Simulated scan of single mutants.
Amino acid sequence: MQWLLLPVGGVLSGVLAGLFGIGGAILMIPLLITMGAEPVQATATSSLAIVIVALSGTWQNWKMGLLKLRKVLYLGSSALVTAQLGVYLANRFPPHILLICYGILLSSSFYLIGLKKRLVRQGDPVLSKDKSNSGRARVLAAIVTTGGTAGLLAGLLGVSGGVVLVPMQILLLGEPIKVAIQTSLGVTAIAASSACIGHALGGNVLWADGLILGVGGMLGAHFGIRWLPRLSDAVVTFSFRTLLALMSTYIFWRAWLAYATATV
Rank of each mutant, 00 (worst) to 15 (best):
G86M: 06
D130F: 13
L27R: 04
L140Y: 06
V144T: 11
L119M: 09
Y102I: 10
D124Q: 01
L31R: 05
S128G: 05
L119I: 04
Y102A: 00
L152G: 03
M35N: 11
T146R: 06
L127K: 07
R92M: 05
A141Y: 12
L32H: 02
P39L: 06
L75H: 08
K131G: 00
T58Y: 01
E38K: 13
E38A: 15
R138H: 12
N61D: 12
I104S: 04
L152A: 00
Y102L: 15
V139M: 10
L98Y: 12
Y74I: 04
S13K: 00
L19Y: 01
L112S: 03
R121P: 00
S109R: 01
S47P: 07
G18S: 05
T82W: 10
C101D: 00
K71F: 03
F93W: 13
T82R: 01
K63S: 12
V40K: 14
P95T: 10
V15T: 04
L48F: 13
S134L: 15
I97Q: 08
G21F: 08
K63L: 14
G65A: 12
L69N: 04
F20Q: 03
Q84F: 07
V53Y: 03
S13P: 00
V120W: 01
P30T: 10
G103L: 05
M35P: 01
T43L: 05
G36V: 04
A49N: 10
V144A: 02
S128K: 02
